[in-house]
Simulated assay, not measured.
Amino acid sequence: MSKQYHSFEEIDERLKVLNLQRLIAQESIKLQFNSTKTDLVPQQLRQGLGATFSQKGTIKSLVITFLSSKLLDFIKSKRKSRNRDLS
């Protein structure tokens, strides 16, 4: 249902609230993005995700841990095969 406004002041106040909510949401996204970048540092990847999974117990953390493990194993195998080719 739509809200009925009785004055322009009410409309202005509501617009200010909505603008602040939008700014908060943007900052939250920035914070989550930066947190994700920090968590994806290769040396900290497995350790951080293991701790996250034990603390939060989320399926998302489990999937990320599994995929990161597979990705790191893939990278290691590519490096080994490249080193064998160079020898």
Rank of each mutant, 00 (worst) to 15 (best):
K37Y: 00
L71F: 11
R22V: 13
T36V: 04
R84Y: 00
V17H: 12
A25V: 07
D12V: 05
L49V: 00
S7H: 05
S81L: 04
R46N: 14
L71T: 04
L40E: 05
K78I: 02
T52R: 02
Q47F: 13
H6V: 11
T36F: 08
V41W: 05
S87A: 08
F8H: 13
R46P: 02
V17Q: 13
E27G: 04
T65P: 01
N19F: 09
D73Y: 06
Y5R: 06
E10W: 01
K3H: 14
T38F: 07
S68M: 02
S28H: 10
K3Y: 14
I29Y: 04
F74M: 06
K70H: 11
Y5E: 10
S87V: 14
T38C: 01
L49Y: 07
I24A: 15
P42I: 09
F66G: 07
G50S: 08
I29L: 12
A25W: 07
Q44A: 15
F33H: 08
P42D: 05
G50W: 05
I24S: 15
V17E: 12
F33P: 05
I59E: 15
I59Q: 14
L72D: 08
G48C: 05
R46C: 14
L18C: 09
I29F: 07
V41D: 13
K3S: 11
L45I: 12
N19W: 08
T38K: 10
K80I: 12
K70A: 09
L62S: 01
L31K: 01
Y5V: 07
D12A: 11
S2D: 15
V41Q: 10
F33Y: 12
Q44S: 15
Q43Y: 12
G57M: 01
T58H: 02
L18F: 00
L15V: 02
S35E: 03
T36N: 10
E13Y: 12
L86S: 07
S81R: 05
G57F: 05
G48H: 06
F74G: 07
D85R: 11
G48A: 04
L62A: 06
S61W: 01
R46T: 15
R84C: 00
D85E: 10
M1P: 13
N34L: 06
S54I: 08
K30I: 03
V63M: 07
N34H: 03
K78T: 06
G57L: 04
L62T: 02
S61Q: 04
R79C: 04
L20H: 11
Q32P: 04
R84G: 07
F53T: 02
N19S: 15
R79D: 10
F74L: 09
I59K: 13
L23D: 15
Q21L: 11
M1W: 15
L15Q: 09
K56D: 02
L86V: 07
K16R: 12
I29P: 01
F66D: 09
Q32D: 01
V63I: 11
E9T: 10
T58V: 00
S69L: 11
L49G: 00
S2Y: 13
S61P: 00
S28N: 12
E27Q: 10
G57C: 01
Q32C: 03
K78E: 09
T58R: 06
K76R: 11
T52W: 00
H6M: 12
G50N: 13
Q47P: 06
E13T: 10
S54D: 02
K16F: 14
V63A: 06
I29D: 03
Q44F: 14
I11R: 02
P42T: 04
L31P: 00
I59R: 12
F53Y: 01
Q4A: 11
K30W: 08
L62I: 06
